[in-house]
Design a protein around this nucleic acid. Structure first.
Lengths: 159, 159
DNA sequence: GCAATCGTACTCGGATAGTTGCTGTCCGAGTATTTGAGG
DNA sequence: CCTCAAATACTCGGACAGCAACTATCCGAGTACGATTGC
């Protein structure tokens, strides 16, 4: 059960975009960490479709946050990239077992499914409680120079 | 981010083995839900390696629980089949960014990694709190006839 | 000098190959049972 | 009738293909800027 690599890239990019405050081309974002630019672009496209980011075409264009960083939770990013489905997929196999009723929705009645769902719910609750703005604050607290350093790397031609 | 199908099969099989109380061949276990027997066998092998199940070769053989059902948590089963690694893999990309130090272990200092790890920890905590015996109890409470029905299907030649 | 227009360079966006891991299947090693012969 | 041994049938165990998803890459559509030309 592995999560896509793009989630890590997207989260760091969102934090960096929070500090940038202006559209940044994907080439610049990828250059920060030596990432494949085209593939990072693919991930950010999914975030645009989810409304987390907004894209600006043409020169001086790039990606910027689509809404306030405090309104973007980690869960939003994960769902945008990994999809809304739970990791545990209940295929309702007990419907074919002894005493199984094909008309019952076992995703809501099977004890195994309920327990797995409850665990994932706890996971989602933790992710929903943390926002990109909160992550940025934590980094600033431990490393106050980070925002300025990132801005200098993302916007080298800023007067 | 999908969890392997084998987890669902393994959990139901563990509950059924709790009720059986005797070694059951994988053919019988798979027949309950019309599952591919050879593939289910592959999953149960992993549970044997983890000590969750024990295998008995030869006629009258099969799989049985390796320890008390109350001592088998859902987390044990998931870890045995999906591996011990976290779903979110921190590749420490910020070590290559501005202000990054290659000598620092960012899995323990990066704010993104810490938040993701905390969420997974909540997930693991929920899974560790529920045992196979607890699942079996829940099913019995809602459907008291289930254990007898399963025993009849798994041990048809019991005198 | 000013304005309109054409060209250019830069951006995102989706369509296209390569690789890893999950899914499914098969045959071989090992053991308890059973069956037969011999004492 | 009892004992022993060999054959047998049934089990798990690991090794072998098929497929879907993640990873990585490329080229085309669209836009803003800037230079150029005409007024």
């Amino acid at each position: 059960m592995r999560m896509g690599q793009g989630v890590e890239w997207a989260l760091h990019s969102c934090v960096n975009l929070t500090w940038a405050g202006a559209p940044v081309p994907v080439t610049r974002l990828a250059g920060l960490y030596d990432l494949p630019a085209a593939y990072l672009n693919k991930q950010l496209q999914a975030l645009v479709r989810a409304g987390i980011l907004a894209s600006v075409p043409g020169p001086k264009g790039g990606f910027r946050l689509g809404r306030e960083a405090s309104e973007v939770s980690l869960l939003d990013v994960v769902v945008a990239l990994e999809g809304p489905d739970d990791a545990f997929r209940c295929t309702q196999i007990i419907a074919k077992g002894p005493g199984g009723d094909p008309d019952i929705d076992y995703r809501e009645h099977c004890a195994v499914s309920l327990s797995m769902r409850q665990a994932e719910l706890a996971w989602r609750r933790e992710l929903a409680a943390r926002s990109v703005a909160g992550i940025a604050r934590d980094v600033e607290r431990h490393n106050p120079a980070a925002p300025q350093r990132v801005r200098a790397a993302l916007l080298p031609d800023a007067s």
